[in-house]
Design a protein around this nucleic acid. Structure first.
Length: 638
RNA sequence: GCUGGGAUAGCUCAGAUGGUAGAGCAACUGAUUCGUAAUCAGUAGGUCGGAGGUUCGAAUCCUCUUUCCAGCACCA
C-alpha cells in the first residue's frame, strides 16, 4: 500500500504506508536526514519516528527554523532535568519549556543551585548526550498518568495532570532513566545535542504566580554545533558592551544617585543637551502635523484621579498623596486628565476637531524596586504624550497619519527595522463593543493600507481600548518597545467629554492616546543600546573635536573651533598638554564623530586633517569644505 | 515585592583563615611640544554603602538597613 506525501513546494510523491518522517527525509538526502529536528504532518508537529498512515502534507524542520529550535531546546530541557535528577534525586521537577533563546526548567529544591552545581549539571548533560539515549513517546490515560507520577512523588506533574481534560491524550517521554510528562515532539536521541551551556539560575514562581511557592529555575542553551554556541556567547558579550547603563556612564550622559532616590534620573550636560535636541526636533515635527503644545502641572487633586479611575486601577503604583490645605494631591502618573481639562475649558464644536494636544509630560509612577532598570524602567519619566480628540468620521485618517508619523519619526533616529503589534479587546474591557470594533478596524486598515506587516495580539489590548505598538529591532535581534497608539473609551466617558455636532446635539468624541518615543528615558536607553553609543551625527553632544598637535597650535585650533561654532556645529578643542595619540584615543573613546587634527602642515596649507570615529584618517580638507559637508550631514540626519 | 549574588579612591578592580587598606586609569604639579587609539616623574585622594553587635582588635564574622545586579512577578 502506498500513500501520497505532499511537500511544501506542492510536489507530491508516493511512499509505502507507515513510512516514518525519517524515512522520507532520508529519501530526499542523507544530509537532510542528519539535520532534521522535527516535522509537521498536516500542520501538526510530530516525532521523527512517527509513522504516516495516510496521504498527508509534510514539512521538515531543521534547527534553523523556529519549530526546529523549539523542539531542540525542549528536548534539551528534558536532558537537563535528567542530569539534575541524577545529581539531586530529592529534587522535584515542575515545568521546562523552550524559550526564545534556549530553555529553562523549574525545580523544587530547598537550597538554591550554586554556580558549582551548574557546572556539574552541565558536565552530566554532556555525558548523557553522548550516551545517545532515545527519546521514546508513550501514551496513557489521565488516570494512569496521575497514578504513575504520584508514585514517583512528582506532585507538580500531578497538579498539571489534574488540570487537563479527561479526553485529552496524555503522553510522556522517556530517555534513559528519566521520565517526563510531555506533549512532545522531541529529538530522536540525546546525541543530537552537541553544544551545551547553562547560563544562569534564579527563583521563579510556580505557574508564574507570586502567591505560589518560589522554585529554582535553571536557564540554558544548546546548539547542534560548538560554533553556533560560540557565536551566541559572543553576542551575549556584545550586548553587555552595549548596555546603556555602562555607556551612559562612560559618555557621561546620566546618573542615578542613591541619595536622590532609585529610579530618578539625573541628566548630565551631555544627556540634557541630547534630550533638548530630541525635544526640539519632536516639537518641530508635531507643529507640522497639526499638534498644539500644552503644558500641565505635576500634581493634581485626588478628585481628579478618582474621576479618571487612576486611584482605583493603579493606586499601588502611584506615589502617595501630598496633603495641602486639607486637600489631597497626587503626583501625576499620566497626563490625560489635564489634557481633557484643557479640552473641557470651552464648549467644543465639530468644526474644531480634530484637536491634538501634545506635551513632553513628566510623570511619576511607583515602580516596584525589583522592576527598576537603568533608563528603561524608572520612577520619574517624560512621556512624549499627545491626545487626539476627533469625530468618528475623522478616525481613519487620524490613525493613519499617526502611524506614518510615528514610523517616520523613528527613522530619523537611525532605526530601520520594526515589529508592529495590533492588540484587540481583552476579556475585561470598558466601552461599547461597536466602538471597539470600529477602532480596531481603523487601526487594522491603517496598517493594511500602508502594507505594514504586523502581528495580531488577540485580546491583548488595554481594558480601555485597542492599540498598535511599535517595537524597534536592533542588530543583535533584540526588540525595544517604543511607540504606542491607544484608543481610550474609558476617560471620555468618565469625564463626560462632548462636542456639539452639525446636528446641534452633543456627541462623545473619540480619544486616541499616543506616544511616539514612549518615554524619553527609555527611548534614550534604546538609542544608546541600538547605536552602541555611536549616535547619529545630528544627536551627538560633541560633533567635532579639534586636536592641536602641540600647544603651539592651540590658538589656531581655537580659531577653527570658533568657525565651527559659528556654523552651529557643536565643537570643542582639546586643551590638554598631551601627544596627539593620546588625544585621539580619548576622542575615540568618547565616540566623537569627527576629529580635526591641526599642526604645522595644516596651518601652512590652510586645511584640517580629518579623522572619523571608527574609520580613521580621511586625509586633508579645506575647513570651509568640511563645514559644508558636516552641515549637510546634520541637516540630512545621516 | 520575591529568590539569589554584590557594594572597597572619581572610574575599573585587588585585598586566604579578623591585626587597622592597595594597583591601574582619571585628577593635580612639573618636565616634555610631540603627526593618527595611552610620554615620563611626582603629589593628593578612602570614617571600606549606613546603623548596631561579637572581639583586645572588624573591609573581613553576625543582625538590621539602604542600594545595585540577574531572574521571577509587575509595567496605565
Amino acid at each position: 500500500m502506498e500513500i501520497m506525501i505532499e511537500f511544501p513546494d506542492g510536489s507530491r510523491k508516493a511512499y509505502p504506508k507507515n513510512s516514518t518522517v525519517m524515512d522520507i527525509a532520508e529519501s530526499i538526502s542523507h544530509g537532510l536526514a542528519k539535520e532534521i529536528v522535527t516535522a509537521s504532518i498536516n500542520e501538526k508537529l510530530v516525532d521523527l519516528d512517527h509513522q504516516i498512515k495516510e496521504d498527508a502534507k509534510i514539512k521538515l524542520f531543521k534547527f534553523d527554523s523556529p519549530e526546529g529550535k523549539n523542539v531542540y531546546w525542549h528536548s534539551s530541557a528534558h536532558l537537563m532535568a535528567q542530569a539534575v535528577k541524577q545529581l539531586f534525586p530529592e529534587v522535584k521537577v515542575a515545568i521546562g519549556p523552550a524559550i526564545e533563546n534556549g530553555f529553562y526548567y523549574d525545580f523544587d529544591k530547598e537550597v538554591p543551585f550554586t554556580d558549582a552545581d551548574l557546572e556539574k549539571i552541565e558536565q552530566r548533560m554532556k555525558e548523557l548526550a553522548k550516551q545517545d539515549e532515545k527519546y521514546i513517546r508513550h501514551s496513557i490515560s489521565k488516570a494512569e498518568a496521575i497514578q504513575k507520577f504520584e508514585k514517583m512523588d512528582e506532585n507538580y506533574k500531578v497538579e498539571l495532570l489534574q488540570d487537563m481534560s479527561a479526553d485529552e491524550e496524555i503522553s510522556f517521554y522517556t530517555q534513559g532513566d528519566f521520565v517526563d510528562l510531555c506533549r512532545g515532539p522531541h529529538l530522536p536521541t540525546t546525541s543530537k545535542i552537541k553544544a551545551i551551556k547553562l547560563l544562569k539560575t534564579s527563583g521563579a514562581y510556580w505557574r508564574g504566580d507570586e502567591k505560589n511557592k518560589m522554585l529554582q529555575r535553571i536557564y540554558g542553551i544548546t546548539f547542534p554545533s560548538k560554533k553556533m554556541l560560540k557565536k551566541y556567547l559572543h553576542d551575549l558579550e556584545e550586548a553587555k558592551k552595549r548596555d546603556h547603563r555602562k555607556i551612559g556612564k562612560e559618555l557621561d550622559i546620566y546618573s542615578i544617585s542613591d541619595e536622590i532616590g532609585p529610579g530618578l534620573v539625573l541628566w548630565h550636560p551631555n544627556g540634557a543637551l541630547m534630550r533638548s535636541i530630541i525635544e526640539d526636533y519632536w516639537k518641530k515635527r508635531h507643529f507640522k502635523e497639526g499638534y498644539e503644545l500644552v503644558a500641565t502641572p505635576h500634581i493634581g487633586k485626588a478628585e481628579l484621579w478618582k474621576t479618571s479611575g487612576h486611584l482605583g486601577f493603579y493606586d499601588e503604583s502611584m506615589y502617595s498623596s501630598i496633603d495641602v490645605d486639607e486637600k489631597k494631591y497626587y503626583l501625576k502618573p499620566m497626563n490625560c486628565p489635564f489634557h481633557i481639562a484643557i479640552y473641557q475649558s470651552q464648549k467644543r464644536s465639530y468644526r474644531e476637531l480634530p484637536i491634538k494636544y501634545a506635551e513632553m509630560g513628566t510623570v511619576y509612577r511607583y515602580e516596584k524596586s525589583g522592576a527598576l532598570h537603568g533608563l528603561m524602567r524608572v520612577r520619574g519619566f517624560t512621556q512624549d504624550d499627545a491626545h487626539i480628540i476627533c469625530t468618528p468620521e475623522q478616525l481613519d485618517e487620524e490613525i493613519e497619519k499617526t502611524l506614518l508619523f510615528s514610523l517616520d519619526m523613528l527613522k530619523a533616529f537611525g532605526f530601520e527595522k520594526f515589529e508592529i503589534f495590533l492588540s484587540t479587546m481583552p476579556e475585561k474591557a470598558v466601552g461599547e463593543r461597536d466602538d471597539w470594533e470600529k477602532a480596531s478596524r481603523s487601526l487594522e486598515k491603517a496598517l493594511q493600507k500602508n502594507q505594514i506587516d504586523f502581528e495580531l495580539d488577540e485580546g491583548g489590548g488595554a481594558f480601555y481600548g485597542p492599540k498598535i505598538d511599535i517595537k524597534i529591532k536592533d542588530a543583535l535581534n533584540r526588540s525595544w518597545q517604543c511607540s504606542t497608539i491607544q484608543f481610550d473609551f474609558n476617560l471620555p466617558a468618565r469625564f463626560g467629554m462632548e462636542y456639539i455636532g452639525e446636528d446641534n446635539n452633543s456627541h462623545r468624541p473619540f480619544m486616541v492616546h499616543r506616544a511616539l518615543l514612549g518615554s524619553v528615558e527609555r527611548f534614550f536607553g534604546t538609542l544608546i543600546e541600538y547605536h552602541a553609543g555611536n549616535f547619529p551625527l545630528w544627536l551627538c553632544p560633541v560633533q567635532v573635536k579639534v586636536l592641536p598637535i602641540s600647544d603651539q597650535y592651540l590658538d589656531h585650533a581655537k580659531k577653527i573651533n570658533a568657525s565651527l561654532l559659528a556654523n552651529e556645529i557643536r565643537s570643542k578643542v582639546d586643551l590638554k598638554n598631551e601627544k596627539i595619540g593620546y588625544k585621539i584615543r580619548e576622542a575615540e573613546m568618547m565616540k566623537i564623530p569627527y576629529m580635526f587634527i591641526v599642526g604645522q602642515k595644516e596651518v601652512e596649507a590652510k586645511t584640517v586633517s580629518v579623522r572619523k570615529h571608527q574609520q580613521g584618517d580621511l586625509g586633508s580638507f579645506g575647513l570651509e569644505e568640511m563645514i559644508a559637508r558636516i552641515k549637510k550631514q546634520i541637516e540630512n540626519k545621516v
